[in-house]
Nucleic acid binder design. Structure first.
Lengths: 275, 275
DNA sequence: TTATTATTGGAATATATTTTCTAAATTAAG
DNA sequence: CTTAATTTAGAAAATATATTCCAATAATAA
């Protein structure tokens, strides 16, 4: 008699053994299937009250299904709650941890990055707010010239955006710091333009400073960054937050790239309509 | 001083007051934003351990944001977990898809690209042959200097590779055609080096020609391209084939980017072992 | 520097939660 | 209807968890 380790297995067990259960245990089984959230989050006594049973019945219930106590069964309900939620980060973290010590054959590495990339994309769907996306597109559409700023590993994103915006006949300047002219390139920004900055922790100081200065001049700033603590988020008019996944100590760019692509296409639509 | 009652409000508060917090409280704020699930489900001491702080700090943290204790704050994290869970989210999404079809089109675009990106990544797993991947890594590992060549929308990939290879202390030259010196940059290639070319149809003629010439000189050429008809595939020692998915007339770069990342990490392992 | 204030760590305490145990109630069998 | 077996309720005990408190440490101002 081994206890179910997943929510699905437990559900099946609850259903199939329902008939052979005693009256009170039946009652609890029904409550559990109806209110899995309560089972996951509430205390024994709270659940007991809501299900109109004694607390001790819940312990008997858990033991009847092979658990050592109620708490152990509750873990199963809790894990379900997490897996169902918008949290791909967890899965990815465990992925990263496991795979580091395993074989480093390159095809295994590829598998990890593919899994990580898929998770990051799924997560992107959950965390990007449509409103912010609209706002961003709006600001970019209205801008006379779009300035793009990114350094290091974010630079390829800006580089791609420069290419794509040019194809949309949207004027843009890629601040690439070529020839050490980072500030010089940025200086030509003026009212009516907009800045799109991309940076992740640890945030490139050039980009952060540029964002602050630009905002200070009253020029709209939109950014792509991670989390609310990002200095870009704090000093931008709109910030699109991306959670990139780290596998093998290297951060993927799939999600950010996909977001960039989306911006381009959405901007293309917006420009079509206004013209 | 009234405590935030929703997860979003709490998130905002955590971000905006982050600067004024003491060292330990900052640390906790960062952990909380990174691991909302832990905050929702784990016990004070478990969280304390994972965040490397004292349990009492967590209580002080909660009180600093106006709660009577940690448990009260935890409720906010828990409610978020429930709201995000199971069918609630699905309902909202499908609702949004139908009703707001015209007004905020950009989130629909995002959805499409995410689906496309996931499809491309899944496909990548099937089409990339481990042998070719190994061969590619092998060639790059043996090269004295790796030359990177890509144009237009593939350029960001090469740009990223240049960044990443530099981090591996692998010498590389990004042939970016800056100052119209495409051929000049390429001319310095010699025996012992290798060329990594990236191009998709319609193939940039510069890159194709460079591949042919380089091969002619007896310098190994590896490439990332699409399908067997690619001139890169025909004139390379090894070609990794990627099928990117086209959505809204724009090709994604997720799969290619993921492949590039994989190359970098696999190359890193290879270099570690040989040194 | 020294005095003052704020912050922190960690043991001690209070609270809450789970689990056990037993007498009472219910059910099933003869 | 009686008896044995099961199940249940509820209080008591054990455990886990949250919170408080204060000495030690670090930060800040004089």
């Amino acid at each position: 008699m081994t206890a179910p380790r997943t929510y699905e297995a437990l559900r099946d067990e609850l259903a199939s053994r329902h008939d052979e259960l005693s009256k009170r245990l039946k009652q609890i089984a029904e409550y559990a299937l109806d209110n899995p959230n309560d089972m996951a989050l509430e205390t024994v006594s709270a659940i007991a009250e809501r299900a109109a049973v004694q607390p001790s019945s819940l312990i008997r219930f858990a033991k009847a299904f092979g658990y050592t106590g109620f708490s152990e069964m509750q873990k199963v309900f809790r894990s379900h709650l997490v897996e169902n939620g918008s949290n791909y980060k967890e899965r990815i973290r465990s992925l990263g941890r496991d795979s580091v010590h395993q074989s480093n054959a390159s095809s295994i590495v590829l598998d990890d990055f593919i899994d990580g990339g898929i998770a990051a994309l799924s997560n992107l769907r959950d965390v990007i707010s449509p409103e912010r996306l609209e706002q961003t597109v709006d600001i970019l559409a209205k801008a006379d010239v779009v300035y793009l700023s990114a350094q290091r590993r974010s630079f390829p994103i800006a580089s791609y955006l420069a290419y794509a915006l040019a194809h949309l006949d949207k004027r843009c300047v890629l601040i690439d710091g070529n020839g050490g002219m980072f500030l010089e390139q940025a200086r030509s920004m003026r009212k009516g333009d907009a800045l799109l900055a991309i940076s992740f922790k640890s945030y490139a100081s050039d980009v952060v400073q540029l964002v602050k200065e630009t905002r200070g001049k009253g020029i709209p700033v939109v950014s792509i960054s991670d989390g609310v603590l990002s200095p870009l988020a704090q000093h931008s008019d709109v910030c699109l937050e991306v959670e990139e996944v780290e596998v093998h100590a290297f951060r993927s760019l799939s999600a950010t790239m996909t977001l960039a692509l989306t911006l381009v296409v959405a901007l293309g639509h917006a420009l079509d309509q206004s013209s």
